[in-house]
């Protein structure tokens, strides 16, 4: 135990202390324009009570859920599809693997700028092309019906290679014998996938879902660059709402309460998915 002490101290310093400070701040009405609010614990539960009465917060959580579910689903499907297509060692597929990784290695701001251009009707090659073929597309980021989906599309484009990469690795770890056996038994493509490949890659998909779900809750740069939370509040997801409360209104206590709730949510989701992952892990052992 004593030997672990240095590691535990470092862990406490870099993770537990900031989280603890965040939680303590969330118990105060800290407003940077009013220094006296910094250590005012006279109403430690006020911020949390306020959250449940704050319709904008609840709506932001709803938008967050939409964004997270849609991006994770699209990324898993896209990544899985791409991995299955590229699961052969030919020169073209090797090139395809490298090329498809490009979105993931771009800085998020570069992705945001790129797609900002793509979504700006006046200058977008995509919009011009669609108009040219007679299928004009309405402005996506300023239309409340499409704005969140515009973010979903970009986030999925940026991060589906992550799933692709992990699933490809998992596919290449599958032994040849069950595949050969299924082939001899006359399994078609779907049966091969469903009954042979999928059980092997399911744990990997769970891990991908976990990572991408956590990351989707942290979505910020794309929203900041593409929509600034608008139109109206159509893309104001929870962490963007916390950002506005802190950086636009200086309400750091309230923003900390939102952040604390988000951290707790991530822990809970991680735990649930970890449990699910543990179960699926045992299925094909």
């Amino acid at each position: 135990m004593l030997g672990l002490a240095p590691a535990l101290i470092v862990l406490a310093a870099i993770t537990i202390a900031p989280a603890g400070y965040l939680f303590l701040t969330s118990l105060t009405p800290l407003n940077l324009t009013m220094p006296g609010t910094a250590w005012d614990f006279s109403g430690p539960h006020y911020n949390y009570l306020d959250l449940w009465e704050d319709e904008r917060f609840l709506r932001s959580a709803w938008f967050q859920a939409h964004l997270s579910v849609a991006t994770v689903a699209l990324q898993l499907l896209g990544g899985l599809g791409a991995a299955l297509l590229l699961n052969r060692d030919t020169p073209i597929r090797r090139f395809g693997r490298s090329a498809l990784l490009v979105p993931m290695v771009l800085p998020p701001i570069a992705v945001g700028i790129l797609w900002r251009v793509m979504y700006t009707v006046d200058i977008s090659p995509f919009h011009r092309f669609m108009a040219w073929i007679g299928l004009p597309v309405p402005p996506l980021t300023t239309d409340p019906d499409f704005a969140l989906w515009a973010i979903v599309l970009v986030d999925s484009w940026e991060w589906f290679p992550f799933t692709m990469l992990l699933v490809l690795a998992a596919l290449q770890m599958i032994p040849e014998s069950p595949i050969e056996a299924a082939r001899i038994d006359g399994a078609n493509g779907w049966q091969m996938f469903r009954y042979v490949l999928f059980p092997y890659i399911a744990p990997t998909l769970v891990v991908c879902a976990l990572f991408r779900l956590i990351d989707s809750i942290k979505a910020f740069p794309l929203i900041y660059v593409l929509t600034s939370g608008g139109p109206g509040d159509a893309t104001t997801v929870t962490n963007y709402y916390a950002f506005v409360q802190a950086f636009n209104f200086s309400l750091w206590g309230y923003a900390s309460a939102i952040a604390t709730l988000m951290v707790a949510t991530i822990f809970v989701i991680s735990w649930i998915i970890d449990r699910l992952g543990g179960n699926s892990d045992g299925r094909h052992d």
């Binding site: 300023t142 608008g230 109206g232 159509a234 209104f249």
Partner: peptide, 22 residues
């Protein structure tokens, strides 16, 4: 000193109206 708060709400409200959201 609290105009920034009103400013944000006005901007969002107009966005909702102009975009046909409300």
């Amino acid at each position: 000193h609290v105009y920034p708060q009103a400013n944000a709400q006005i901007t969002q409200a107009l966005e909702r109206i102009i975009s046909g959201q409300m």
